Amino acid sequence: MVEKIDDIGFEIMKLRENKNISQEDLAIELNIFQSKLSKIESGKTKKIDIITLISICHFFSISLSEFLQYIL
C-alpha cells in the first residue's frame, strides 16, 4: 500500500483534469467505483493499493517511477 495519499490523489486529479476526463470515466477505465476515486483524489482514503496505482499509470501512459517522482 502506498501511504502518501494526499500528494498521490492531487497528482491523479491533475493528470485527469489535464486530459479532460471525468472522475466517472476514469473510474470506469480503472474498474473501480467513482466514489473510491473521489476519496483518493481528495485524500480521504488513507491508502491506495499498488494495483490501482499501476492501472492509473498505465492509463496515463507514464511509468510508476515517473509518477512517484511527482510526489517525492
Rank of each mutant, 00 (worst) to 15 (best):
M1Q: 02
M1V: 00
M1R: 00
V2I: 13
V2W: 11
V2L: 15
V2G: 06
E3A: 05
K4V: 02
K4Y: 00
K4I: 02
K4N: 13
I5P: 00
D6A: 00
D6V: 02
D6W: 01
D7L: 12
D7N: 09
D7E: 13
D7S: 10
D7C: 03
I8T: 03
I8E: 02
I8V: 15
G9S: 11
F10N: 03
E11C: 11
I12V: 15
M13L: 14
M13C: 13
M13Q: 14
M13R: 15
M13T: 09
M13V: 08
K14G: 03
K14N: 12
K14H: 06
L15E: 10
L15C: 09
R16Y: 06
R16A: 07
E17N: 14
E17F: 09
N18E: 11
N18L: 11
N18G: 11
K19T: 09
K19Q: 14
K19N: 14
N20L: 13
N20Y: 11
I21D: 09
I21R: 10
S22I: 06
S22W: 09
S22R: 08
S22Y: 10
E24N: 12
E24F: 09
D25P: 03
L26Q: 10
L26N: 11
A27T: 08
A27P: 07
A27C: 11
I28Y: 12
E29K: 14
E29C: 09
L30I: 03
N31T: 06
I32S: 01
F33Q: 15
F33L: 12
Q34H: 08
S35L: 07
K36S: 08
S38K: 13
S38M: 13
S38H: 14
K39W: 01
E41V: 03
E41G: 04
S42F: 05
G43C: 05
K44E: 15
T45W: 03
K46Y: 00
K47Q: 10
K47D: 04
K47A: 08
D49T: 04
D49I: 05
D49E: 14
I51S: 06
I51V: 13
T52K: 03
L53S: 02
L53E: 04
I54K: 13
I54G: 02
S55N: 15
S55Q: 09
I56H: 05
I56P: 06
H58L: 10
F59V: 05
F60L: 07
F60G: 07
F60Y: 12
S61W: 03
S61C: 08
L64D: 05
S65A: 10
E66G: 05
L68K: 01
L68E: 01
L68P: 00
L68C: 05
L68N: 02
L68G: 01
L68W: 01
L68Y: 04
Y70F: 12
I71P: 01
I71H: 04
